[in-house]
């Protein structure tokens, strides 16, 4: 498939996960991220099935965004992005961008969701740049956040993006 510009576009379809294929999301993330998340994390993100989405190329899972909604003090809700990853062979085709855009677009529709939040390792400049394009900014830095995962450096930035412009 070719775009007007001549750049190849992957034949990607997006759909949500269910418990039957949840194992695929786990395997995908294990292949991409150095952290192993507990099963409970995965089960939780299933609840928000319209926000947690997979990208499938010819029915093969190649990327996914996993999120959960967290209630904040004061009744507002934040969208926490647990993982957003694409298999190495499928990068640079805009799959990650499309996944993030879709989820953010849906989140905006819900006026209760105030902001989108995620953690990123302080040296992960690529990710910080990527999220920067969508208006995410470093709001806080937590030293030693990844200590129990034995990552180096163990520190994390919190990236935040406000979703409701009206206020």
């Amino acid at each position: 498939m070719l775009e007007a510009s001549g750049k190849y576009v992957l034949p990607i379809t997006f759909h949500s996960f269910n418990e039957k294929i949840l194992e695929q999301l786990k395997i995908l993330n294990c292949a991409i991220f150095p952290i192993k998340y507990p099963d409970k994390v995965y089960r939780d993100c299933l609840i928000f099935s319209d926000l947690t989405q997979g990208a499938f190329c010819n029915d093969v899972l190649v990327g996914a965004i996993a999120v959960r909604l967290e209630r904040q003090p004061g009744g507002k809700v934040q969208l926490y992005i647990i993982t957003l990853g694409v298999l190495a062979a499928y990068r640079n085709y805009g799959v990650g961008t499309r996944l993030l855009e879709r989820t953010l677009r849906k989140a905006v529709e819900d006026p209760n969701i105030e902001e989108a939040v995620l953690h990123v390792q302080t040296n992960n400049e690529e990710a910080i740049r990527f999220y920067g394009k969508f208006g995410f900014e470093v709001s806080q830095t937590i030293p030693g956040y990844y200590k129990k995962n034995r990552l180096d450096p163990p520190d994390a930035h919190i990236l935040t993006k406000a979703l409701q412009n009206s206020s």
């Binding site: 695929q24 395997i27 995908l28 294990c30 292949a31 093969v60 899972l61 190649v62 298999l87 190495a88 062979a89």
Partner: peptide, 17 residues
């Protein structure tokens, strides 16, 4: 050789049942 190829395939797409 068969298993080696499969392993290469798995590195590209570990999500293929």
């Amino acid at each position: 050789e068969a298993l080696r190829r499969l392993q290469q395939c798995r590195e590209l797409a570990p999500t293929l049942p």
